[in-house]
Simulated assay, not measured.
Amino acid sequence: MRLIYKYFLNHFFSTNLSLFSVLFLIVSMVFFIQLARLTASIEIGFMDFLKLYSFMIPRILIFTLPVSFFISLALMLHKLSRENESIVCFALGFSPKYLGRFFLALAFVVSCFMLIVSLIFVPLASKLQKNFVEYKKTQVKLNLKTGEFGQNFLGWMIFIEENDGVKYKNIIMYNPQTKDKDKEQFIIAKEGLLQRDQNSLSFRLIDGNVYNFNESLSWHVGHFNDMTINSELSDLDPREENIYQYWKKMFSDDDRAKEFVIYTLIALFPMASALFALSFGLVTYRYDKGMVYFGIFIIIGLYFGIFSLFYKPPLLSVMLIFASFFIASVIYFKKKILSKY
């Protein structure tokens, strides 16, 4: 029996490795595009880019490993059934019940690992990424180009006519009204200097005018000889929240609740879907071609669709959705597989 387990496991690992590599590459490309947007405001080197990418690896694993586990298991078993190898094992007395227990145990190990990744490493990596980006904003040269419209700096739209390498000259800045209490502001300055220290980034403006606009269409003009626009980098606050505090916010923050439900249920997907994979993959190919591809799309679509819609209350949603799919997989496996073999 140990040789049979090893035989199935070797086929599963070879199938899963190729599929996981493809999915990992595809999802990585999506995250690469997100990282590339950072260069719109700051300049980073290749090593910094790789460091930012490493912070995203936990999230990439979340969206690839559980899905590849389910698809690989179903396709591997379907391939062996097509070649009648699984049927031979059952004819020699090896029960599908043992195969189900074996892959459920493997799915349990994978789900436990993914829970650690999703509930511990994802928040830590997210915080490290934010701190790294904010730190880089104070250390690297900003990518402010002369003669270009639409650039953003500290929440201001900015246009710079000249740059001699030290000072910016003939600067126009516009701050739109984003909140009711904010004022629409317009600044024209002859010169500007970028200043930074450990926890802040500022822009010093020399010899210019400030225009404030109100909702009543009235406006005020003020002249300045020297003015500094500051931005405190609050994300570098040393009083960082721990993992418990991070997830505790899911009871008051809908976005955090949805994040918890999505990451947790994706991590539990191998256990919830393992018996479905066996049910779709194990067929008597001579009489039944099976519906492995249709079944894969249905299970993934239902599972991911349901937890994307129902995430409140978060803990109850996780338990109900996971339990429903797991119980349904057990019933379907007994009806379709154990009743025949």
Rank of each mutant, 00 (worst) to 15 (best):
N10H: 06
N16L: 12
N16V: 13
I26C: 09
S28L: 11
M29V: 11
G45R: 12
G45Q: 10
K51I: 07
I57L: 06
R59Y: 05
F69C: 03
L73N: 10
L80C: 12
E85M: 06
I87R: 07
F90I: 10
F90M: 12
R101K: 15
L104V: 06
V109I: 14
S111A: 15
C112H: 03
I116G: 06
I120S: 12
V122W: 06
N131M: 03
Y135K: 15
N143I: 00
T146S: 11
G150K: 05
G150M: 04
N152P: 00
D164K: 11
Y168T: 02
N170D: 14
K179Y: 01
K179N: 06
I188A: 06
L194K: 04
R196Y: 11
R204M: 09
L205T: 03
V210M: 06
F213P: 07
N214S: 15
E215R: 08
S218T: 15
I229D: 02
M250C: 10
A257E: 07
K258N: 09
L265K: 07
I266C: 03
A267F: 06
L275Q: 02
L278I: 07
Y285F: 14
K289R: 15
V292Y: 07
F297R: 05
I299D: 00
G305K: 06
L309W: 05
P314S: 10
L316K: 12
S317F: 06
F322E: 02
A323L: 14
